[in-house]
Amino acid sequence: MSLSEFYSGMRKGFPIALGYLPIAIAFGLLAKIVGLSIQSSILMSAVVFAGASQFIALNLLLAETNHWQIIFTVLIINLRHFLMSAFISQRINKKSRKLLPLLAFGITDETFSLISLNLHTNNNLSFVLGINLSAYIGWVAGTVIGVAVGKGLPVIVQTSMGIALYVMFIGLLIPGIKKSKEKLAVSLIAVGINSYLYWGPALISSLNKGWKIMITVVITCTLGSLIFKGVTNNE
């Protein structure tokens, strides 16, 4: 462990914490409405640490869905993280192998985005753990605030902060696709496929977010690797 790398990761992860906060507060509020105890709500955020899954679990609980069915749905939603962890597993510095299980726990769409685009300049495990911890604090603290305070942020603040994670994704994506026409092409293909999955036939658009992302990523990256055979892997 390198403490300075760890702190630098924590600073890097700040935008994620900021983006998670209002969503986690909303989760805490909804959990209370669904009837979860304070302890259960906080425990769920602390051990599951997956936004979309937790919201869907609440909806299914409200509909009195069988618990095994909820668990299965959550598994499906999170299969996409397999691709993200596969990416990180190839590039992370494995000097502190013992900490890899801890690192894996912190992989979310948001931490992955930030980590993957920093790995070429910094593949230090402490740095990545710092990013993950920032995100985790934002998520758990937000949940605590939501269940304890019992009311959300002012509507306009909540709405404005709702854009935070999306603009972070934009901030991460643009510098990459600006410099590489392969990445730009791949990005446009992904947007096209994902838009079809959202606005296409009802059978497709009714799929959950996890499926949509996974389908988009698998098709896009397959096409990308078939079309652009010369991309370097040294980045």
């Binding site: 691709l83 999306y166 992904a190 994902n194 990256c221 690797s225």
Partner: peptide
């Protein structure tokens, strides 16, 4: 090569 494109595909799909 597939993995090389994963971050960009993921980000685009998330946005």
């Amino acid at each position: 090569r597939f993995l090389y494109f994963v971050p960009y595909a993921v980000l685009s799909a998330l946005i």
